[in-house]
């Protein structure tokens, strides 16, 4: 049996009167890559953003049910949202480097979380190496991050997240704005990261989901329709909707 790292229980989410997520129950196993797939508007990105409380900022979002990181209820008012986001990192659809230098992008989170000064340099170097970016940028760490290519920016955003040594990394269609070569690099990176992190990734790309995932969750109209091992979901889907979707009949 897999060890469960992150889980949602009876999760409902409303934007105003409209219910976006309907009674979601899902367990994400530790050190595996789980893909959330489904047609656009099915709520997969909305679900992903529940896991690090990104909906806190939208005034009309209402959440019921619970989400647990190990045994910690992340929506419990006692728990600090900044602590939770330190433990559950996120990478976004479009690369969003801070308007600062490459080095400052990496050191920003370390500084606000008050990591010891003498460790920062080392942590940054190893995180950049982990993202295969070190060789490309080691001589120009002072360069503004926005000067990097799109793929490099996205790898920087991943490195910026991993430098904090989070436990879970959420990725919201991280390759959708990138060219095929950069996409390949990021996919390799994701697979190599799973030995240290639990990864949840939203993707609309079936091939990508097959290439990188251990588990796959198919969502439709705010509901979790099917969840299982990657191979099972793609080769032998149980639900008619899943069959049609992975077979490319809609979406």
């Amino acid at each position: 049996m897999d060890q469960i790292k992150l889980s949602a229980h009876s999760l409902n989410l409303y934007f105003g009167q409209k219910q976006i997520l309907k009674n979601i129950n899902i367990d994400f196993p530790k050190n595996q890559v789980t893909s959330l797939i489904g047609p656009s508007g099915c709520g997969k990105s909305t679900l992903l953003r529940c896991f690090n409380r990104m909906h806190d900022l939208s005034s009309d979002a209402k959440i019921e049910g619970s989400i647990k990181l190990d045994d910690l209820d992340i929506y419990d008012k006692k728990n600090s949202v900044t602590e939770i986001r330190k433990r559950i990192g996120m990478v976004f659809q479009k690369p969003n480097p801070l308007p600062k230098s490459i080095y400052e992008n990496m050191s920003y989170a370390l500084n606000i979380h008050q990591f010891p000064k003498n460790e920062i340099q080392k942590l940054i170097e190893s995180a950049l190496k982990e993202s295969y970016l070190w060789e490309e940028v080691k001589d120009e760490l002072k360069k503004p991050a926005v000067k990097l290519s799109g793929g490099q920016q996205q790898r920087l955003c991943i490195a910026r997240t991993t430098v904090l040594r989070p436990e879970v990394i959420l990725m919201d269609e991280p390759c959708s704005a990138l060219d095929p070569i950069s996409t390949r690099k990021i996919e390799e990176l994701i697979v190599s990261l799973k030995k240290d992190y639990t990864i949840v990734i939203v993707t609309h790309n079936m091939q990508q989901a097959q290439r990188i995932s251990d588990k796959v969750a198919f969502m439709y109209l705010g509901e979790l329709v099917e969840f299982g091992n990657c191979q099972d979901v793609f080769q032998n889907p149980q639900n008619e909707l899943t069959k049609n979707y992975v077979g490319g009949h809609f979406g």
Binding site: M54, L57, I84, K86, F92, P97, A109, I112, T161
Partner: peptide, 9 residues
């Protein structure tokens, strides 16, 4: 804003 918030700022 999401970039830094997601880092725990």
């Amino acid at each position: 804003r999401e970039a830094t918030l997601a880092l725990g700022a």
